[in-house]
Amino acid sequence: MSIGLFHTRLNVSNHLLGAPVLTLDLLVDTVKKKVSGVASIYQSTWPPLNFRARVWGEYSEAKLVPTAESHIILSLDGNPSGPTSQIAETFHLKGILGAEWDSGFASYKYQEQGIWHPVKHAAVSQAPVIVIPEQPHHAQPLYAVAVQQAQASGDLAQLKSVVSKGEQQLAHSGALRSALEQLNAEIARLEAR
C-alpha cells in the first residue's frame, strides 16, 4: 500500500446484467486514514440511473488472525455537495478490501427520488483509469501577416524565409501543406519576373 496520498479507482458491482455499477474515484490519505472523492452509479437498463455524490469517510486496517493477511475496512458517506453542506446524506458504503485496495466486497445504499436502494455484498475490483491524451499547449505561429507583408514589399528573400519557417512547423497538416504549396508557387511566379 502507498504511503501519503494516493488515488484509487474502484468498481463495485454484483456482475448481473443490467445491475447498477458503482465507480469510486477516491483520494486516500494514509496518514489521517481519511478518504474523499466521488461516487458514480450507472445503470443502463430501465429505469436508467445516473447517480453522483461527493463522498468522504475513513478506513482502518485489520489483520485476520489465522492468515495474518491485512485488510482495509472502509466506511463512506456522501451527498451531492460534500461533508460541509447542509444537504442530507444520500449515500453510505461499508466494505472490506484487500491491503492493496484492489479487491474485496462492499454493501452500499443510495437515495434516488426519496427512496433508498440497497446493494448488498457486491464485488470490488480495480476500475480502469481513464487517460485523456494531452494536446500540445504551445502556440503554433501562423505566418499570414508576415507572408502578406513580404508579398506587399516584394521582398523575395523575406517571403522565402517565412514560407520555410511555415514548412518546418506545419508540414504535417494536409490543408496547411496545400497552402504552403500555393505559397511556393507564388514564390516561383515572383522569381520568374
Results as ranks from 00 to 15, higher is better:
2 S>Y: 12
3 I>T: 10
3 I>W: 05
3 I>M: 09
5 L>D: 15
7 H>K: 12
9 R>F: 01
13 S>M: 02
14 N>C: 04
16 L>W: 02
18 G>N: 06
20 P>L: 02
22 L>M: 13
22 L>E: 07
23 T>N: 02
23 T>M: 03
23 T>E: 03
23 T>R: 14
26 L>F: 05
28 V>D: 12
29 D>N: 15
29 D>H: 09
29 D>T: 03
32 K>G: 03
33 K>L: 10
33 K>G: 06
34 K>V: 06
35 V>N: 05
35 V>G: 01
36 S>M: 07
40 S>M: 07
42 Y>L: 14
44 S>G: 14
45 T>S: 15
45 T>V: 12
48 P>Y: 05
49 L>N: 02
51 F>W: 05
52 R>T: 06
53 A>D: 11
54 R>A: 08
55 V>K: 08
58 E>N: 12
61 E>P: 00
63 K>G: 01
63 K>M: 12
66 P>Q: 14
66 P>Y: 11
67 T>R: 10
67 T>Q: 08
68 A>R: 12
69 E>M: 07
72 I>L: 14
73 I>G: 00
74 L>W: 09
75 S>K: 15
75 S>D: 14
78 G>K: 06
79 N>G: 03
80 P>W: 01
81 S>R: 14
81 S>N: 15
83 P>D: 13
84 T>R: 01
85 S>N: 08
85 S>W: 03
85 S>K: 08
86 Q>V: 10
87 I>T: 15
88 A>D: 10
89 E>S: 09
89 E>Q: 11
90 T>V: 05
91 F>N: 07
92 H>A: 09
92 H>T: 12
93 L>N: 06
93 L>F: 04
95 G>R: 11
95 G>I: 00
95 G>Y: 08
96 I>E: 15
98 G>M: 11
99 A>W: 05
99 A>R: 12
100 E>V: 05
102 D>W: 00
103 S>C: 09
104 G>N: 06
104 G>A: 06
105 F>K: 15
106 A>Y: 01
109 K>M: 12
111 Q>Y: 00
113 Q>C: 02
113 Q>V: 03
114 G>W: 01
117 H>S: 13
120 K>W: 02
122 A>C: 02
125 S>N: 13
125 S>A: 13
130 I>P: 01
131 V>G: 00
133 P>K: 07
138 H>E: 14
141 P>T: 03
142 L>C: 06
144 A>Y: 12
145 V>K: 15
147 V>C: 11
149 Q>M: 11
151 Q>F: 04
154 G>C: 11
155 D>Q: 10
156 L>R: 10
158 Q>M: 08
158 Q>W: 04
160 K>F: 01
162 V>A: 08
162 V>G: 11
166 G>N: 13
167 E>I: 03
168 Q>C: 07
172 H>K: 10
175 A>S: 11
176 L>R: 09
176 L>Y: 09
179 A>L: 11
181 E>D: 13
181 E>R: 06
182 Q>H: 14
184 N>M: 02
188 A>G: 10
189 R>K: 11
190 L>W: 05
192 A>R: 10
193 R>H: 05
